[in-house]
Amino acid sequence: MAVVETRKLTKVFKKAEEGAVNDVDLVTRDGEFLVFLGPSGSGKSTLLRMIAGLEEPTRGDVLIGGDVVTDLPPRARGIAMVFQSYALYPHLSVEQNIGFPLKAHGVPKPKRRERVDWAASLLGIQHLLARKPRELSGGERQRVALARALVREPTVFLLDEPLSNLDAKLRASAREELTSFHKRVRTTTIYVTHDQVEAMSMGDRIVVLNKGIVRQIGTPHEVYDEPADTFVATFLGSPPMNLVEDTDFIAGFRPESVVPAEMVRGPSAPIRLRIRLVEFLGSERILHGVIDGGRFDGRKVVSRVATAASGGLGEGAAHDFAVPASEVKFFDRATGKRAAPRELSWR
């Protein structure tokens, strides 16, 4: 088990272009499940591949277990990786696939068998050992890839969107399995995804990336409730945080904080919304409205309310809502960075 650290890690693919990864400093905790989250093209894979040693950094260093490994090839880093495509060797059986890393490291055959059986039983794929990868379903392939990664008992697991090839239902159960699997082995894991649900539900901490820059590192609670800037605020949450611009700052509040006025206790800011559109999602409804009157007249605001609590709310009508004062976050208008709380006058 080990800690992964990056120091000013940078990758510039083409000179004169912006870097794919820029000066990333981060340190994992031992045994942690760290998630890289960001939109497509934000540099998550590049960062992960530099940690793996598959991509040569333009600048900066990678440390694993306290040692600088920047110049070591992937095989010498004690890591294992699961690829988005799973990268199962098509010409080898499942058993040979799982045994491949052991064979490459010169583990003798009897020992190899034993480890393969162990890894296969851990993931419940003993019955598939004789098959070829093309004879497996997506979920089975993912397990084989996982078994191949863990068979060597690496100090660090690197996973690049391993669930993105699965259908929605399988993805949910695979998520759960991965989490419980991590709880059992407690190996430091770095997990790349652009799916915030995966990030929130699986990560001990989340690294939010955009354009190769780390925007925030924190627990799911921290990044959701206390976003470091407007990017994080709008990237996480669905629908995203409402942002209302004032002269020198931006006020943000999540759709679920916009509740019918009669349900709010304590200090809160009242707003009147004219509802334009109602989306019904079963247990809850998404209300798209515009502010009616006051300083922010005409701004769009989205509210998310439990279906049970929104009986009288219909399209076209104006209703009184309120946002609890503690739920309003403030950002600097120039930098987008988080700013100190202040008084917000709505009128």
Binding site: R49, A52, G53, L54, P73, P74, R75, I79, A80, M81, F83, A87, Y89, F100, P101, A104, H105, R148, R152
Partner: peptide, 8 residues
């Protein structure tokens, strides 16, 4: 890449 990570 997988083969590189796996030790080759």
């Amino acid at each position: 890449d997988a083969a590189l990570v796996d030790g080759l």
